[in-house]
Simulated assay, not measured.
Amino acid sequence: MSANPQTIAAHEQILHFPKGGNPKLAPNEWLIWSGNLNKNEDEGANSRLPDLEHGKKNILVPFTWWRSQINSYHHKADVQAKAKAGHIGVWFTADEDILKHADLIEQGKSLWPVVAAYFPIFRDGRSFSTAALLRDRFQWTGEIRAIGDVLIDQLLQGARVGFDSFALRPDQKTDIALKQFDLFTVTTQNSWRGKRSLLEA
């Protein structure tokens, strides 16, 4: 994907690893809108959803933008139409306190086919907690995607806490990524995916 200040870069293929299933690759059909609007321009014009690019069919919008726009007059019909058609999901920043917005997230269960948690840099692990909270506290059963600075090294931990899809950084090699889930045959900790392995004495 070409550089665009209004989007967050991601690999052209998504790694899906559903609970109880096998990891597989699929085309990335989601544009990730950064929502970094130019404050010097008209707020109404800049709050509208961008045109989809690069053949994308769907758009992930910042949760903060969703909160501010879904009840506003500007472009409300466009947003609701796309949401009802399953073409809009939201992404959470690393410092988002999702527990403060429990009611809105509960409503999102029937609206957002995908939610994502953003890694601003691979060393920042706060988004692992976001995925865990969505699975444990909110009982989120839909897709949770890791986006941003997502490296192969993060896949196993991400899959354990609740992520079931990964928009890897564009420079990551998908063939190597797929092999990460075969590295270990024994699980020593309970996780969202199941209980730890029982070892014979």
Rank of each mutant, 00 (worst) to 15 (best):
V79G: 00
H74R: 12
A77N: 07
A45S: 06
I105Q: 00
L151F: 09
G194I: 01
A131Q: 05
A201Y: 04
I32F: 06
A167I: 05
P62K: 00
H75C: 13
S34M: 06
V115I: 10
I105V: 09
N71H: 11
S191G: 11
L99E: 11
G194Q: 01
A83V: 15
V114A: 01
L111F: 13
Q107H: 12
L156W: 12
S47K: 01
S197E: 07
A77S: 13
W30F: 09
A77Y: 10
K109T: 10
S34A: 13
A10W: 02
L60V: 08
S127G: 04
E29F: 01
K57S: 15
R160D: 03
W192I: 15
A201S: 06
I121R: 15
E41I: 04
L49V: 04
T188M: 15
I105M: 05
H74C: 04
L52C: 08
L99H: 14
H16C: 14
T93H: 13
G162R: 07
L52H: 11
W30T: 14
Q189I: 13
P170I: 12
T185V: 14
S191A: 14
F122G: 02
R48W: 07
A177K: 06
V61R: 09
F128H: 08
T130Q: 10
K84T: 11
A77W: 09
L104T: 10
V186A: 06
S34H: 03
A102R: 15
Y73T: 15
T64Y: 08
R123E: 07
R193E: 00
R169H: 12
K109S: 02
G21Y: 04
S197I: 12
R169C: 07
W66K: 00
N190Y: 06
I121C: 12
D42I: 04
L183Y: 12
I144Q: 02
H54P: 00
P5F: 02
A117P: 04
D103T: 10
L133M: 14
G44N: 14
T130L: 15
Q139I: 13
E143I: 15
K173H: 14
L15T: 04
R196A: 15
G108W: 10
E143S: 07
N190S: 13
K24G: 06
K39A: 10
G194H: 03
D95R: 11
W65I: 03
A131C: 08
N71R: 11
V115E: 00
K82A: 13
A3T: 12
V186Q: 12
K173S: 11
A83R: 09
R126L: 01
L25I: 03
D124I: 05
A159E: 01
D136Q: 13
L99M: 13
Q69S: 12
S127N: 03
T7H: 13
S68P: 04
K19I: 06
G55E: 01
W140E: 05
T64S: 12
L25K: 05
N190R: 09
T141H: 09
L52A: 06
I32L: 14
N28M: 06
S165T: 05
G55R: 07
